[in-house]
Amino acid sequence: MSTTRLDIDALTTALADLNALGQGGWSLSGDQLCKTFIFPDFVRAFGFMTQVALIAEAMDHHPDWSNAYAHVRVALSTHEAGGITERDVELAWHMERLSSRG
């Protein structure tokens, strides 16, 4: 997976694809790909984070995120590239897949 920073056209396409895949909510904030996932309760939010953590560790690509009860706010960026790369988009796809499982 490339760690080359995505250009605006690739970012626009990735953002549209991610929002079409799931419940929407992905946005760009500076050099980060962001979304707040909302779950029915804390246990499901924390379970989601646990599942994502295993994938992120295997990818050696760790999200900046926070949890407040049933909300998980995610900000993805590849620090060594200084912005969003294919690795961030791949991790976002995994997050969408896992969040749709309920």
Rank of each mutant, 00 (worst) to 15 (best):
R73W: 15
F37S: 06
L15S: 08
S77G: 06
D31T: 07
L21F: 10
N19R: 07
R97P: 05
T4I: 00
A58Y: 02
F42I: 14
R5M: 02
T85L: 00
D41H: 12
V43C: 13
L54R: 11
A70Y: 04
W93G: 12
T3M: 03
D41Y: 06
G25M: 10
R5Q: 04
G22P: 11
V74K: 08
D7T: 03
R87N: 09
A53Q: 14
K35A: 05
T4F: 01
T3W: 09
A20I: 07
G47S: 15
L76H: 09
D17P: 14
A20F: 02
E96T: 06
L15R: 14
I84E: 00
F46N: 04
W65R: 07
E57Y: 01
T13L: 08
M95W: 10
G22K: 02
V43N: 12
M1H: 13
S29V: 10
H79P: 03
F39S: 00
H62P: 09
F46A: 07
Y69N: 02
A16M: 06
W26Y: 09
F48T: 07
G30A: 08
D17E: 15
L21M: 03
H71I: 05
Q23I: 00
R44H: 15
R44V: 06
D9I: 13
G24H: 01
A16D: 14
L91E: 12
D17S: 14
S27M: 09
R101W: 12
S27Y: 14
M95L: 07
L98T: 01
E80N: 10
W26Q: 01
A16G: 12
D7A: 13
H61D: 11
A58D: 11
R73K: 12
M49V: 05
